[in-house]
């Protein structure tokens, strides 16, 4: 599927493990308290999950956070982003921030910035953070190719129509489609509708669809090559370090032999060459006599 659905779900429902459709993923909806509370039951879900999943930090009821609480959130998100199952776009972890219409934008921006800088400090080259506003009925699009569909209040038919429109508008490539669903059945309906919308689109515009598939395959190949390139860079660096050390070691070995050589020459000079000629000849005579 070109349109990648991410179902925002509470941790409890996540454990139902009812979704195994290709490309359908979860974002676990967590309050800041759930994220920072020690030994919470959620952490293991991320590390044992066979399906990709991400964090949806629910800030709808949070107006402010202390410095310590912010740090705990940063660490909690960094921790789960190390899970091999964590949802990533390329190498970049995907994080959702659920906000309300009356959220303080400055506060949300601060949280977003702090999480982003933490993930970069933990070695990620990029982090994708999406701020979604709860309570909106319509799909939203932003510059990051993200669409948000809130089905909590139920407006499924309208949104199913919108899925078709997204395919018609050719804006489904690499697009995340976040859905806040209250029922698992709605998730299934959405997946089915995406599959059908894609089939209809493929039948109507076969050339465009074929090109999209080619582009997707090429992008996947590009990602693989980027990853291989990074590994090769490491091996080249290792090789370079090895040669550097080899050169150093070889240099010090040569220096050692040069010193030995000088010692022998000095010994010869001081112990033999410096002696008077008559003394050396006398020595030769004695040598011949014996």
């Amino acid at each position: 599927m070109f349109l990648k659905p991410v179902f925002i779900s509470s941790a409890g429902r996540f454990t139902d493990k009812v979704l195994h459709e290709k490309d359908a993923t979860y974002a676990i909806r967590l309050t800041p308290e759930a994220l920072w509370s020690a030994h919470n039951s959620v952490f293991e879900t991320y590390f044992q999950s066979p399906d990709p999943c991400s964090v949806c930090l629910d800030l709808t009821k949070t107006k402010r956070l202390t410095e310590q609480e912010l740090q705990l959130i940063e660490q909690g998100i960094a921790r789960v982003s190390f899970s091999p199952s964590y949802l990533k776009h390329g190498d970049a972890p995907v994080i959702l921030l659920l906000t309300s219409q009356d959220s303080d934008q400055q506060f949300i921006d601060l949280v977003k910035k702090r999480i982003e800088s933490t993930l970069l400090a933990q070695g990620f080259e990029l982090a994708l953070l999406f701020a979604l506003t709860d309570g909106l009925q319509n799909i939203q699009q932003n510059v990051e190719r993200c669409y948000y569909l809130n089905l909590t209040h139920g407006d499924l038919p309208t949104n199913l129509v919108r899925i078709n429109e997204l395919y018609e508008e050719n804006i489904v490539m690499n697009a995340f489609f976040f859905m806040n669903c209250s029922e698992n059945t709605e998730c299934f309906q959405i997946i089915q509708e995406i599959v059908l919308a894609e089939q209809r689109f493929a039948a109507r515009k076969p050339t465009v669809y074929a090109l999209m598939q080619q582009l997707q395959a090429l992008e996947a190949e590009r990602d693989l090559l980027i990853s291989e390139n990074k590994r090769t860079q490491v091996l080249v660096q290792d090789g370079s370090n090895y040669l550097k050390q080899l050169k150093q070691d070889a240099g010090s070995t040569i220096l050692w032999w040069e010193n030995e050589n000088q010692k022998i020459i000095r010994f010869y000079q001081t112990e033999y060459e410096s002696l008077p000629l008559w003394y050396k000849r006398f020595g030769h005579l004695i040598k011949k006599m014996f």
């Binding site: 590390f47 190390f82 899970s83 091999p84 190498d91 933990q122 070695g123 990620f124 080259e125 490491v234």
Partner: peptide, 9 residues
């Protein structure tokens, strides 16, 4: 076993 895949730092 718990398995992580963290960036190389």
């Amino acid at each position: 076993a718990l398995v992580l895949q963290s960036p190389n730092i």
